[in-house]
Write a protein that binds this DNA or RNA. Sequence first.
DNA 1: AAGCATTCCAACCGCCCATCA
DNA 2: TTGATGGGCGGTTGGAATGCT
Length: 212
Amino acid sequence: MGRSPCCEKAHTNKGTWTREEDERLIAYIQAHGEGCWRSLPKAAGLLRCGKSCRLRWINYLRPDLKRGNFTREEDELIIKLHSILGNRWSLIAARLPGRTDNEIKNYWNSHIKRKLLSKGIDPFTHGPIIIDSDKKIIDGFGCKFQKNPVEKNLTELNLELSIGPPSQHPLESKEKKVCFYCSLGLENSKDCRCGRSRSSSSTTADFLRMEL
DNA sequence: AAGCATTCCAACCGCCCATCA
DNA sequence: TTGATGGGCGGTTGGAATGCT
């Protein structure tokens, strides 16, 4: 049986969007808001697949997008989030205002991955790269189908990952909040605002309650 | 200057999940 | 309960830009 295609492929444009197409899409969404993506192309007079319109809007045309290079803080936050969430780019993007999952995914694959490898860090496990006697690099899982150890810990801890501004945690009234720098493992940073010492290691739970 | 290799990133593809009739 | 539909996500691709020989 299979699914019906999301659009009539024979009559849709593909490839790079033109300025005119962008303008049409922006004008339509400004007038009608984000709605049914499948019917949007026809309504907006675009020869594009609805999915393509959605992608273009979300990744490049949305007014709240932050363009330009990633900052060092963003770099570190992405690495930290990836160590917890793995390749869940949409969840990572939810923690980086103005950045999209696609942008972060591309940035990870083209920059951060290489940066970590050059430092001898496995980008999958975030642990040191192990080289066995045959000089073969072993990934941190031993087997790529094995569950990410970090993810396993999360499951065992029954932690819920939330999107959006950190919620008020019941413990927050008793415990000190973790500042942004400590959440990145930079307890000794001059910018640290919570005064945590090295001895109190930051945890996943801390991270999820971090103050942004 | 030319040809080839590498990098980067916008866009597409296919799958999954939630919702609804 | 089941199938159709739409939205969302992660993986992958392909072409432009850049670097290297």
